[in-house]
Write a protein that binds this DNA or RNA. Structure first.
Length: 267
DNA sequence: GGGCAGATGCGAACTGTTTA
DNA sequence: TAAACAGTTCGCATCTGCCC
């Protein structure tokens, strides 16, 4: 019996899946399976999981052992903390960055983090914010920097820290009448426009719909931009034709508005 | 019957021990 | 001290069996 086997057992029990446990442990599924097998063998081949069902579930003995294992891991963590209390944080830090935030996060803040905590090994990946939240929840990531709108929810158990606010820029065709200098645009002014939005599920889209609903204004959707692979919406097209959907080809004289969004992902 | 999660076979890499 | 060997752990590829 060793600590790694115990960690694997607890990970499988807590995630309910060997695959998810493997992600949390930074191992492959076969390696995780073998750790569980080793652990069961060290317990005298005691059946800790009922494998007759899929996914496997803990047996009553497994539940009993799980409580002991958690106490063991807690004790080990306390022991480690007692010896490293005065030292800088060290080890692997798996961080996720929302699509579109790379330039903002991967330069100065990350350099500062590396300089401040030299013993931390950073592993950075990029994804949609909603997927990042899932990965943090599953343990695949330690933390993530994302774009959250009012339409996003952060699951219980996760800590949310606001780093700042960003503006969603609405781009309209040049033929849209201009406002007098200094007079701000209001959503009411754009209610008659046709909107080009990311597909349903996009956080910015949901927030816009919510804002229109609040004002009891109609939202005319001219077209939704094509999503990338999967259900996650892609960022706004930056091709020369961006903002021009097939329903209203360039130069047709019809006014249109465009809500830009990059990185928030499905809610 | 297909999809998916878990189990297994096999080889590679790493680590610890033994011996010259 | 260095080479040889054994044991351990891992990942890739593939198989098995459950669930929908």
């Amino acid at each position: 019996m060793n600590l790694q086997d115990i960690e694997a057992f607890v990970a499988v029990a807590e995630t309910g899946s060997v695959n998810r446990a493997a992600v949390r442990l930074n191992l492959t599924q076969p390696a995780t399976t073998r750790r569980i097998q080793n652990f069961e063998a060290s317990m005298g081949d005691a059946p800790l999981f009922n494998r007759a069902v899929k996914p496997a579930v803990l047996t009553s003995l497994g539940n009993h052992v799980l409580e002991h294992c958690r106490r063991v891991l807690t004790a080990v963590a306390e022991l480690e903390a007692s010896t490293t209390k005065t030292a800088d944080p060290a080890g692997d830090l798996k961080a996720g960055i929302a699509h579109g935030m790379g330039e903002m996060v991967l330069t100065t803040p990350l350099d500062a983090l590396r300089r401040t905590f030299a013993r931390i090994r950073l592993q950075v990946s990029s994804n949609w914010t909603s997927n990042l939240i899932k990965e943090v929840r599953s343990g695949a990531l330690d933390c993530a920097v994302g774009l959250l709108t009012d339409a996003h929810t952060v699951p219980a158990g996760l800590t949310r820290l606001s780093l700042g606010a960003d503006q969603v820029v609405i781009v309209a065709a040049s033929k849209t009448p201009t406002r007098r200098s200094g007079t701000p645009w209001r959503l009411r002014d754009l209610a008659s426009e046709g909107w080009l939005l990311n597909p349903p599920g996009c956080g910015c889209r949901a927030a816009l719909v919510k804002a229109f609903d609040r004002l009891q204004l109609p939202l005319h959707i001219a077209a939704g931009s094509a999503a990338s692979s999967g259900s996650a919406p892609g960022p706004p097209r930056r091709s020369p034709g961006a903002g021009n959907d097939s329903a209203h080809p360039p130069g047709d004289g019809k006014r249109r508005a465009y809500a830009a969004c990059c990185g928030c992902g499905p809610t």
